[in-house]
C-alpha cells in the first residue's frame, strides 16, 4: 500500500450524538456523545482495523459513515467528494458504494426465506438479471464462507449462531461493493471457520480491490487482517498506526492495558491478569482532560488540563497521551 494514494474515504473531526430531544412520552433524553472528534482515512485497497472498549463508538462510526445515523459535525469525503451534511436519504444514496456487514448476525435474514432465496433476491434487487450468474455466484459465495450446498434450502432458524453470521457475510460480499465496513465479522466463529472466512475476506480484497474498515474485538484477527489499526476509547481515537508497530510497541496506556488483557492458554491465568480499575466511562458525563484518566495507571495532574491531541510517536504512528515520555512506553509492555 503506497502511502501517498488519495484517500477513498476520508472522515474529519466527526462528532455523533444521541439523545437530547424529548423522547416520546418521556423526559428529555440525556445526550450521549458516542463519537467525539474522530478522523480517519481509508486508502483504496487498505484494511483499517478499529478496536476499542465495548460502547466506545465503533458501530456508531460505521452507521454514520453509511448515512444511517446523522453526524452532528465533521466532514466526510468519498472519492474526494463531500458526502456529509446531507439529509439522511441523500446521504445513504451518496454513500451507496459503502456496504455494511451488521454486528447482529440475524439482522439481515428474513425468517420466511430460505438462505438460497434470500441471496438470490439480494442479487436480483442489485440488478443481476441472469439467473445462471446468480446461481453461480451464490454457490461460489456459500462455499467460500464454508457452507455446503444443503444450506441453500435451509431457513435462518435452522442455523447455529456462527452459521447465520457466515450467511450475513456472504450476503454482502456477493454484491462486491467497494468499501465494506465489517462489524465484528468473526465474533462467535470458531478458529476453523474464522480462518476460512478471513481467507475469503482477504481473497476478495485482492481480487476486487476492496477496501475494509474492520471493527473487531479480536486482537489476533486484527493483527492478521489489517496493516493499520486505530484504537478507540470513549468516542476518540487514542492511538493509530501500523498494526505491527502498535502490537510491538503500544504507546497509549489504554492500548497497553488492552493488549495485556488478551486471554492466554494458561489455566487459572485470570488471577494474574489485572483488570482496569475504576468505573466504566460514561459518554453522557465526560471528564475534563484525558477521558482515560480515571482508570489510567499513569494519570497525573496535567492529564486533567485538556484533551490530549494525537501526537506523532513514530512513522505514521501517533498516540493521544501527555505523559508518553514519562511512562516508559518505549519498552514493550
Amino acid at each position: 500500500m503506497s502511502g501517498n494514494d488519495a484517500a477513498l474515504l476520508e472522515i474529519e473531526d466527526l462528532v455523533t450524538e444521541f439523545g437530547g430531544a424529548k423522547a416520546f412520552l418521556g423526559k428529555p433524553q440525556r445526550i450521549v456523545r458516542a463519537v467525539d472528534g474522530v478522523s480517519l482515512q481509508l486508502k483504496p485497497g487498505q484494511a483499517l482495523g478499529l478496536v476499542g472498549e465495548s460502547g466506545c463508538g465503533k458501530t456508531t462510526i460505521a452507521k454514520t459513515a453509511l448515512g444511517l445515523v446523522r453526524e452532528k459535525s465533521g466532514t466526510m469525503r468519498l472519492d474526494g467528494r463531500v458526502v456529509s451534511g446531507l439529509a439522511p436519504k441523500e446521504a445513504r444514496r451518496a454513500r451507496a458504494t459503502v456496504q455494511y456487514v451488521h454486528q447482529d448476525p440475524g439482522a439481515a435474514l428474513d425468517p420466511w426465506w430460505s438462505i438460497g432465496h434470500a441471496l438470490d433476491e439480494t442479487l436480483r434487487i442489485h440488478g443481476i438479471s441472469d439467473k445462471g450468474e446468480r446461481t453461480t455466484r451464490i454457490d461460489e459465495m456459500l462455499r467460500a464462507v464454508g457452507l455446503d450446498a444443503t444450506f441453500r434450502t435451509r431457513y435462518p432458524h435452522e442455523l447455529s449462531g456462527g452459521q447465520q453470521r457466515r450467511v450475513g457475510l456472504a450476503r454482502i460480499l456477493v454484491l462486491r461493493p467497494r468499501i465494506v465496513i465489517l462489524d465484528e465479522p468473526t465474533s462467535g466463529l470458531d478458529l476453523s471457520v474464522q480462518a476460512t472466512v478471513l481467507g475469503v475476506i482477504d481473497e476478495l480484497r485482492q481480487r476486487f480491490g476492496l477496501t475494509y474498515l474492520f471493527v473487531s474485538h479480536d486482537l489476533s484477527v486484527v493483527e492478521r487482517m489489517c496493516e493499520e489499526v486505530a484504537i478507540m476509547y470513549l468516542g476518540r481515537i487514542v492511538e493509530i498506526g501500523p498494526t505491527k508497530e502498535i502490537f510491538a510497541r503500544p504507546q497509549h496506556p489504554y492500548t497497553r492495558a488492552l493488549l495485556a488483557a488478551a486471554p492466554r492458554l494458561e489455566p487459572g491465568s485470570l488471577n494474574d491478569t489485572p483488570a482496569l480499575p475504576g468505573d466504566p466511562p460514561s459518554p453522557t458525563n465526560l471528564v475534563s482532560g484525558c477521558t482515560f484518566r480515571p482508570r489510567c495507571a499513569f494519570a497525573a495532574p496535567k492529564c486533567a488540563e485538556a484533551r490530549p491531541p494525537l501526537r506523532s510517536v513514530g512513522e505514521r504512528h501517533s498516540a493521544a497521551c501527555v505523559r508518553l515520555e514519562e511512562t516508559g512506553a518505549d519498552t514493550p509492555a
Binding site: 476499542g52 472498549e53 465495548s54 465484528e184 486471554p263 466504566p280
Partner: peptide, 20 residues
C-alpha cells in the same frame, strides 16, 4: 451461551472475574 463474544478483552476480563 457465549456471553462475552461481543466484548473487548478488558471488559471481558472484568466479567470473567465477576463470574469467578
Amino acid at each position: 451461551d457465549e456471553p462475552t463474544t461481543a466484548l473487548d478483552v478488558t471488559t471481558q476480563l472484568q466479567i470473567l472475574k465477576l463470574l469467578r
